[in-house]
């Protein structure tokens, strides 16, 4: 965006030193793995454009603040009542047309210019034509987890979006089609893109084009009920080769190991299957997350806890303990049965 850069550089110089310091403090140490989803540490195009634009707006507002607050401070200090006051009223000034015209017109012009830049950025970010080589993903918001479909790849997963990295020479943007199964949610990965609501009965769109590999975190940003706080989402950005590998792994059906046959049978006999799918078995429920490759994901319960064998066991025993209000019920299984089911699920890599 050459024009914005131009406007930016001409306006930013006043607040630049201050801004970069704040930016440094907000985005944390540059090399450490970033777990804070700061909007000022963008790695993907919509967020990068917003970042540049945001600093422009902050700079304009910063200049206004310094000028007005400075004037106010001066007036407050200069005209405070002095000890040697003669007790007479100060001269009464009823107004000044030129002054009032000035502080009407100057803000008007500022607003006009800022509006023009804003409209330009709005247009730039709401893409109407999609570049070649884009990947569609359908995101379905549920109380309180994310369902993810890759229609071209035939993959269904949950709570962990995997996308390939985009290098400027051959960008591979991912277009997300946002839908909701129940109430309004909001899709927000601050380092990748601005948020977009996930509205039942509508389809919204957002796109990401991450330039760096890594894991970027975000979460539902529109209050959606009891467990809104634990509706987390991780985006894993892979190199193209890693992404291919991940996709091939996800496309496979579940492999049933003989050693966990007992647990598998128990899983299929209980009500687990009315909500969960494990491809390659008769379990085909659509209410809860697809478990075909459960152990390839880093968290359980949409980020409520880390995904490992012990936590899996505890989660099945009492989901409500880790995520009070969650729709998944405790199934009332014996400890031994839970061990069997968890043992089976732990093989779903």
């Amino acid at each position: 965006m050459p024009r914005l850069r131009l406007a930016e550089s001409s306006l930013l110089f006043v607040g630049l030193a201050f801004c970069t310091r704040v930016a440094g403090a907000l985005s944390g140490p540059a090399q450490a793995p970033i777990s804070t989803p700061s909007i000022f540490a963008p790695v993907s195009r919509p967020a990068v454009v917003i970042d540049a634009y945001a600093w422009l707006v902050v700079a304009v507002c910063g200049v206004i603040f310094v000028l007005v607050a400075g004037l106010l401070c001066f007036a407050l200090l200069r005209f405070r009542l002095r000890g040697d006051d003669d007790g007479r009223e100060p001269p009464q000034v009823y107004g000044s047309n030129p002054l009032e015209l000035a502080w009407t017109l100057i803000p008007l012009i500022t607003v006009f210019l800022l509006s023009l830049v804003s409209i330009r950025v709005v247009g730039e970010l709401q893409l109407e034509t999609r570049p070649p080589d884009w990947m569609p993903v359908t995101v379905v918001g549920h109380q309180w987890w994310w369902e993810l479909h890759y229609p071209e790849l035939g993959i269904t997963t949950a709570n962990e979006l995997h996308v390939p990295v985009s290098d400027p020479a051959s960008p591979r943007p991912t277009f997300l089609n946002l839908q909701s199964q129940d109430v309004i949610h909001s899709f927000w990965i601050p380092q990748l893109a601005g948020k977009m609501d996930v509205v039942p009965g509508r389809q919204n769109h957002v796109w990401v084009e991450p330039a760096r590999t890594g894991v970027y975190v975000g979460q539902c940003a529109e209050y959606c009920g009891t467990q809104h706080a634990n509706m987390l989402l991780r985006v894993v950005v892979h190199t193209p080769e890693d992404f291919e590998r991940w996709a091939r792994g996800q496309q496979r059906q579940a492999v049933s190991e003989a050693s966990v046959a007992e647990g598998r049978d128990l899983f299929l006999r209980t009500a687990c299957v009315s909500c969960h799918t494990v491809r390659g078995t008769p379990a085909a429920g659509r209410v809860g997350p697809d478990l075909t490759h459960l152990m390839s994901r880093a968290t359980l319960g949409a980020g409520a806890l880390r995904n490992d064998a012990a936590n899996l066991n505890a989660w099945i025993q009492s989901p409500d303990h880790f995520k009070p209000g969650v729709h998944m019920p405790a199934m009332g299984l014996q400890d031994a049965e839970i061990n069997l089911v968890a043992g089976f699920l732990a093989t779903l890599k």
Binding site: I39, A47, V49, I50, Y53, A54, V57, V58, V60, C61, I64, F65, L114, S118, V121, V122, L125, S186, W188, P190, A193, G194, K195, M196, A221, E222, Y223
Partner: peptide, 20 residues
Amino acid sequence: IAGLTGIMLAAAPFDWQLSD
């Protein structure tokens, strides 16, 4: 300050990050 952060929120692309 409230007025100036209001301008930031009025700037729609910035608001896509700040909203909620």
